[in-house]
Design a protein around this nucleic acid. Structure first.
Lengths: 238, 238
DNA sequence: GTCTATATCTGGATAGAC
DNA sequence: GTCTATCCAGATATAGAC
């Protein structure tokens, strides 16, 4: 599956996304014409993601950004009021898109096993299509100012909650084992994150996203399946 | 188990560690007396880890570091030649300790299941005792200069290799299933990392490191156990 | 060995021309 | 709407007294 097919699958269109982006931040953006603003927001955001993901947001100077985006430093400040503000905007947007697409794609699925697999596949494909966003969001969260960081963490937990709820539904329906659902959801999240945090490694090993998705869904499914019995591991050596 | 017991378990003594640290970087450190150098290296390193983990290494200024460590900016430059150099030193040291302790603790264990469990427990306890180091190492790797980064990645892969080899041994001995060992090792690594990357979350949920270790060892053990059969998940909806 | 003082430069941000 | 030019706070790094 190529990248365009993935985009269709998670229904993310660049233009639409940035249009939303623009309208959500209309107040702070001084440019009024939509087509101008969207065009430049794309340039600014892509340059920011590129530079930040290479050497960190705080190591990126406004002059770097100016050069990479093609806008002067003066012009940049028509799109955001401070460097921190730019960080906030991008961070927020990526989490919003993630939660929106994820919710939409699992909405209405009844079968918990299917629903869980769908959530896993969607998250992986989305993080593939929007890789720079996801990577940025993870790496820069701790550099947000207090209030913005609290908000980011809250959204993160809401994404985790989606998985917790699916597992709970499966347990109630009797198709998933009675294991600690928060732990399992945490595990799934960690493994979803590994895909976009270690992209270089998986690329090197020539593992495509579909293979990773299949592996992850398999691990989770086999762990949650009711027929599997658990034994205690011998930990007497501890 | 309290933190001191963990320290004994992974055999990390602060003084010893920093003594090694000092001797390994003797060339670039201008201070000759060991007890002076070690005392100040502790102050410098702990302050660096604290400030960097809060807001990022590149956002930490030398003035911040001076204030937090109690040394003047002038004195700091007797311990490293540049800010980047300081980053290198700390990064290298944490990876070295990790690989040294891990290797020592699994060396000589024959039973693959025990060996794997031991590696998992050791890594988790070590990342608990040295949490700021591990967190720093992960977050700042991409901010290293090219050569240092290549080296860091190489050591990372050597740690992963330890797990790959254990799994291979288990497969040869017939106690582990014939699954993709690189994928499983990657999964283990991702879950080990989750512990120190999301410490705040696990703390909030009051999950102690022992509980996490048991959970993780259980997941891995049940996935690798030979008696478990795998079924194909229905992916027709994709 | 450590400090204070400072040289030198680069950072974010803005004013005002176009 | 965008650019050029510039302000000045704050950065890294060093020199030289103690």
């Amino acid at each position: 599956m190529d990248i365009d097919a993935l985009k269709d699958l998670v229904s993310v269109s660049k233009k639409d996304m940035y249009r939303n982006f623009f309208h959500r931040h209309k107040k702070q953006i001084r440019i009024k014409k939509e087509h101008v603003a969207v065009r430049n927001l794309i340039k600014i955001t892509e340059a920011t993601l590129m530079l930040s993901n290479r050497k960190g947001f705080s190591a990126m100077s406004m002059r770097d950004l100016s050069a990479a985006s093609g806008l002067s430093t003066g012009a940049l400040y028509s799109y955001f009021s401070s460097k921190d503000d730019l960080l906030d905007m991008i961070q927020q947007e990526s989490l919003r898109v993630a939660i929106r697409v994820l919710s939409a794609r699992i909405d209405g699925i009844r079968d918990p096993q299917l629903k869980l697999a769908q959530a896993i596949y969607t998250h992986l494909y989305l993080s593939e299509v929007m890789h720079p966003w996801f990577y940025f969001s993870f790496m820069e969260t701790k550099n947000l100012k207090k209030r913005a960081r609290r908000k980011a963490i809250e959204i993160e937990l809401r994404i985790e909650k989606i998985f917790i709820d699916i597992i709970a539904e499966g347990q109630e329906a009797g198709v998933f084992r009675d294991v600690d659902k928060e732990m399992v959801a945490g595990m799934i999240k960690a493994l979803l994150q590994d895909w976009y945090l270690k992209k270089w490694k998986y690329g090197q090993r020539r593992i495509p996203v579909e293979a990773y998705a299949e592996f992850l869904a398999g691990v989770v499914e086999s762990y949650l399946r009711v027929t599997v019995k658990t034994e205690q591991v011998d930990k007497s050596w501890v």
